[in-house]
Design a protein around this nucleic acid. Sequence first.
DNA 1: ACAGAAATTGACGGGACGTCATTTTTGTGG
DNA 2: CCACAAAAATGACGTCCCGTCAATTTCTGT
Lengths: 205, 205
Amino acid sequence: MSETASIEPIGKREKTKVANRQAILVAARRVFAELGYESATVRDIIRGTELASGTFYNYFRSKEEVFEALADDGARRFRPILRMAREHAKSFEDYLRSAFIAYFRFVAEENREAGLPVDERRPHVRTDTPEMMAVYQEVRQSLEDAIAHGDLPHIDADYLAHACIGIAQELGPAMLRRSPPDIDNAAAFATGLILKGLEGAPRKN
Amino acid sequence: MSETASIEPIGKREKTKVANRQAILVAARRVFAELGYESATVRDIIRGTELASGTFYNYFRSKEEVFEALADDGARRFRPILRMAREHAKSFEDYLRSAFIAYFRFVAEENREAGLPVDERRPHVRTDTPEMMAVYQEVRQSLEDAIAHGDLPHIDADYLAHACIGIAQELGPAMLRRSPPDIDNAAAFATGLILKGLEGAPRKN
DNA sequence: ACAGAAATTGACGGGACGTCATTTTTGTGG
DNA sequence: CCACAAAAATGACGTCCCGTCAATTTCTGT
């Protein structure tokens, strides 16, 4: 008898495996925040866990791969938010604005818990991880839908998606540099600019 | 007498100094292109010169500093182009378009001589070097001038400058990914988007 | 020509890297 | 309950890179 009680579909093997992976990711997040991506080392990360150096390489091939896993995490959390914004939007303008708001909120949140310095914290590494691509696809899909729906003229969806992402990426830090950061204001600026260009961007004061 | 001939305001000391610095930069550019920024090492760089390892540190404190010097170079070459675009422009639209064209040309050029892979080559490192800031300032100044001149409504010049830069940064690689890259088309897209938003962006086909 | 300043050199101690033979842990069949 | 094989963790090891620094070479002014 002994353990008829709980259904344990998951053996100890699997359990420690996810636990270790998680431990590495948690430690990595902290180490990257403290030392910055560049100067952080694989050893720094494993020292932040109970594991031995060799064990690290059972889970990741390099520091960069750990970072990508973290970036993936972020993108994975952000994507459903983006999708909900699309589904709930009453108009294209509405979608755009909520998407920007969601992103800027996300950025502000990530930044707040990572420590103060706005720029220095952002790891300087390639971020074209699969999940990031998925976010791009999500945005692009929204744009193509809007075009097909007649909400947008027939413009280059690829370029437009990149432009939106570029605006978001640059406006995010610019917003954070102001105190206090005004998410709605930044989102209004981006939305207005994309919809109507300079005439659509909110006047200052 | 001996050397009354040429006026040599520059001693041998100074000369080898600039030569060494240049040698390091040239080697670094090649090494970064070949190995990628991440995996390149200071040793790889000096091996590409006639210098000893210790000498490197007389010129730069780290690999990152070398990269920043290279980025500075790029920005330093780009800035006058940008300024000329501003001075020669007949209208704000004209300025915007030529600025984008200049940037996309620059990107295409840098990319062509660095080897083919579009994304992998771009070093993943902070690029907020002083000269980069200067480019941002240059853009922002243009925008503020245009606002003061009445060519633009009173909008947030800081945000707008960041938005332009974000668009340029994302559209550049997106353009390069197409074959053949169409600089004028990308510039037209960016200009139209900024000026009039979606309605201003060129229709596709 | 010479002395002192400036720059170069490469060896060195400290560490990080990624691997791998060994040990420990876990799952399974008798 | 045990034994045995597969899986995973361990940490020592050889290799390489880092940044420094005392010794040496190269330059400059007098």
